[in-house]
Design a protein around this nucleic acid. Structure first.
Lengths: 193, 193
DNA sequence: CTGATGTTAGTACCAACTACTAAATGAGGT
DNA sequence: ACCTCATTTAGTAGTTGGTACTAACATCAG
């Protein structure tokens, strides 16, 4: 392992640090077979913060991601809404949403966007999906911006019919017809899921 | 704000630190109006690690959570599978999967379990959901163990029909009929999503 | 050979600690 | 009021993983 020249080492350093932020300067100096000072100069030039700052950063970032990925009320970001009438949301397909092999979006994320949009558009304390007919008309892929539109067709008593269409650059990727159950009693829930 | 007595202070300390792990001993000593040494004695007695260790811990823990919640290939754990015939999976409803208000499972997680089971049961390089008719028959809740069963009804050419039923303690919570598109060409994907 | 670029050494200093000793302050109990 | 034990505070030395700075090498190209 002949030592790298500056340029090369710095590129590898960036990569190393971003894949494993838990490396001290000392460890890095061993990996690259240079002195600690060299590593520090490199970090200075590349604006890589010190170990503790890096860790703090991932800790904060990840806690936020957790909230936005798993605890969020809605998959996708709502960009327009008229309660009990219609709603629009944007969902950007990221790495975790696709099949690794071919980068095609997993169907259930498109469904999740549509489903949570239906829940959101209904202006009642409790709204649950009762049934749905759905169709995936085209494959969407990593990086796509999926715009989903929900239109409330009918509301009577405790039942709403909503049609959803999702498009990437005007082209339909998903459509569905959702039957929702809703009520103003907050703690029902022994009926549907 | 009269200062607390030891017992009380230590309980509050545990709570404080777990809700916000980014607090230094100095900040904590200000909050509780005691000296830094007192805080350190408390941490010693309660086995609370120092700031840096706490941060390191959340940073590592959270990165794992991310992977298990968002990047997993299958929602739920496959417990039995006979390719092109049938498959069973178990999905335990956790905090991130339910509505906070009433702890009812969001529909799209049940759909995700069924959908990913359908993808898994088909023994071909590429399998995509083309359409589905689904029904949520009962509400499932936080802590429920949902067993999903997929049965391949028919396979011809590039099309498979799969019926899925999901139950919590024998009681049906979800059922669906999935139409899947599949092919042995790895990089198709311009058809469905 | 000289100069620029790159690398290493070394010092002083910092935050946020641990580990330890020792002194001051309570709060009761009799 | 006095003694006592628990609690709190103070202070010192040492650690990790750094920053910031100065100064001394090393390497190579023209």
């Amino acid at each position: 392992m002949a030592r790298y020249k500056k340029r090369e080492r710095q590129e590898l350093l960036l990569e190393k640090v971003s894949t494993d932020p838990f490396l001290t300067d000392e460890k890095l100096s061993e990996v690259f077979e240079v002195s600690i000072q060299t590593i520090r100069l490199d970090r200075l030039e590349l604006n890589i913060p010190e170990l503790r700052e890096r860790i703090k950063h991932v800790a904060r970032e990840e806690t936020e991601k957790i909230r936005s990925l798993s605890l969020q009320e809605v998959i996708g970001e709502i960009i327009d809404i008229e309660l009990n009438d219609h709603a629009l949301s944007l969902f950007i397909v990221e790495d975790g949403h696709v099949f690794q092999k071919n980068k095609i979006t997993r169907g259930h994320y498109l469904f999740a966007q549509a489903n949570s949009l239906c829940v959101a558009v209904i202006d009642e304390p409790l709204a649950l999906t009762k049934s749905a007919d759905i169709e995936f008309t085209r494959a969407s892929k990593l990086g796509d911006k999926v715009i989903s539109k929900a239109v409330v067709e009918k509301m009577d008593g405790h039942r709403a019919i909503i049609t959803v269409t999702s498009r990437v650059e005007q082209r339909l990727v998903f459509k569905g017809r959702f039957e929702m159950y809703y009520t103003d009693e907050t703690d029902e829930g022994e009926k549907y899921g």
